[in-house]
Design a protein around this nucleic acid. Structure first.
Lengths: 343, 343
DNA sequence: CTGAAAGCGCTTACAG
DNA sequence: CTGAAAGCGCTTACAG
């Protein structure tokens, strides 16, 4: 079955291909009568313009690329929704790829995005060293918005979260509750948000006049498994910490699992504050106190920045910082604290 | 900065565009010497072939489309991983869209996929009525594999799960534990898997010689909120059921939330068995007994079917049925039961 | 083994 | 307001 193309439509409607193209692109210089006739032909033939051809010729496209670093993390799926909704409202479609926190996979998808000639790209870097690969895309005219993470030596439009302040608040909360030995399960220092959350942790200890025990600072990889493994280590350590601050949602789940298996009670034996809320955090064996991030809004904002950039390629770069807030539930021990007070 | 194209490369390497194209496509009829020279030019210029152009001309593409119906559901994110890994191994890339359980959005994305000329498409339908829209794509040469859900009146390659049997097993488990009044929170009957799970539920009751109380069968929409709402209803009902069988993971979370808020104990006051496991199911206030689905493998299999279809367009349609298994944790009351026995 | 040329399906100045 | 024609960057018979 021969595919119907613009020529078929033109013949059917008795107009030129140029005219069909014009009505397709809502060019106002087409008479009502011709437009109607053309639209009818399009409808009747079920014509679907070939975007590959359009993109080739017009050198512009209405698809936005989005590369997240872990599609299995609810943080990103929520961001994805924000991006999709905002893009859709602006008549753009989005294609999504998953770098799996892997710089090599990221580079590969970057190539694909370039080859696909997406109009612009939102990406969560896998490392602060990703700048060069990203820069390449902007050089060929594909603007980039950085999501959630920064990059060394290069500047892009970015949307970030106040990680330092967020972590500070979470750790301070633990300290205010009386914890003096607070451990941290962090992410890889290759990630800016991991560094920032660690900095927030340090700041909170310093601000409280507490000493920093480097042995209490552990490096995970933002996956469940590492939170689990480090959680066990921490629970087994000789001079056990009173609390753990965990730098992301999945590692928090892992840590909770570890403590459950070891029958370490939360928060009585060890308190926990996590970074990033999830739909299930409140239904866990002990409802999680977390530093919550505006995930959906992160996606919205990133898309908006990209759309702005597309509209004004030469505008100065912009960084949007979104704010976190502490959600106090039970894993931090606040309830316990209240009960004690009541006694 | 003018983009480097095949012409630039050809001139730089001192060969024709045709030759560059040949080395790009690993055409064996190129001499080693010329190939090396061309590759060097490609490397030096950082040439990135324009896929839009290739697709236009070659009328073939190495990108696979994947349309899931709820990107926020861990079921689908796991499926996505399976698809991506399998596609990647076959040198294909995948672009992902989210229909949000909305037939209109699905139609829209279907158009985009067609316009993008993807090589093939894996889709989770939003309704059994989606067949016609899907058929359209196969008519223009884009093969389709149905994921997790079937469709009326049209036949496609499909990968499904043994929903009837899975639900049967879950409900039977509850009955064996002594529950005679088992409620069901199901999905919309527009979805084949929702129908099948309901059928499995009915079968289990019948097999046990129990009567079916239609008032105990509730229709949700596979989102948290509906599980929550119906969970409350059920908890408040006058002749309260002893157990609930919930047809998907997100609704199960909602139901757990509802019961917690109402201080209905699980499983003492009401037992729960859910359909589909999640990473957090075991860490919930009461670890969830679930009918687990092979999610990752579902993605793998769907991709394999699509790849097969691409290789052999005229082969007969195939349906792969993957199997579920029951994971017994605590929400069903099995532990309780054991304790009783021990007394 | 390699090149010249046609053509994929669009869009966009350029005329009129 | 509309059409004829060129061209986007590739691939692929067709020659040689």
């Amino acid at each position: 079955m021969p595919r119907v193309n613009i020529k078929t439509v033109a013949q059917y409607a008795g107009v030129s291909e140029a005219t069909v193209s014009r009505v397709l692109n809502s060019n106002p210089t087409v008479s009502e009568e011709v437009r109607a006739r053309t639209l009818e032909a399009i409808e009747k033939l079920g014509y679907q313009p070939n975007r590959a051809a359009r993109r080739l010729r017009a050198n512009s496209s209405d698809v936005l690329g989005l590369i997240v670093s872990d599609i299995e993390n609810p943080f990103f799926t929520s961001v994805v929704r924000g991006v999709e909704d905002t893009a859709q409202a602006a008549q753009k479609s989005v294609i999504l790829c998953n770098s799996d926190e892997n710089p090599t996979k990221l580079k590969n998808y970057l190539k694909i995005m370039e080859a696909e000639r997406v109009a612009g790209l939102i990406v969560a870097p896998t490392s602060m060293k990703d700048g060069e690969s990203l820069q390449r895309l902007t050089q060929v005219g594909i603007p980039i918005v950085l999501l959630d993470r920064q990059v060394d030596n290069y500047v892009f439009d970015s949307v970030l979260v106040d990680n330092i302040r967020g972590a500070f608040t979470g750790v301070k909360h633990l300290i205010d509750l009386g914890c003096e030995r607070v451990a941290m399960i962090g992410g890889t220092p290759a990630l800016s948000n991991a560094r920032d959350r660690l900095e927030g942790y340090r700041n909170a200890l310093k601000a409280a006049g507490l000493s920093i025990d480097e042995k209490l600072i552990k490096e995970g990889n933002y996956k469940i498994e590492s939170g689990y493994r480090i959680g066990k280590e921490l629970a087994h350590s000789t001079h056990r910490p009173q609390a753990i601050f965990v730098a992301n949602n999945l590692m928090t789940l892992g840590a909770v699992r570890a403590l459950r298996e070891l029958k370490v009670r939360i928060p009585e034996d060890m308190a926990i504050v996590g970074f990033d809320d999830t739909p299930w955090a409140n239904e866990l064996m002990v409802p999680l106190t977390v530093v919550s991030q505006p995930t959906y809004q992160l996606g919205q904002t990133a898309t908006q920045l990209l759309l702005n950039r597309l509209a004004r390629p030469d505008a100065p770069f912009q960084t949007a910082i979104l704010h976190t807030h502490l959600i106090i539930r039970e894993s931090c021990g606040a309830q316990l604290h209240n009960q004690e007070k009541m006694l």
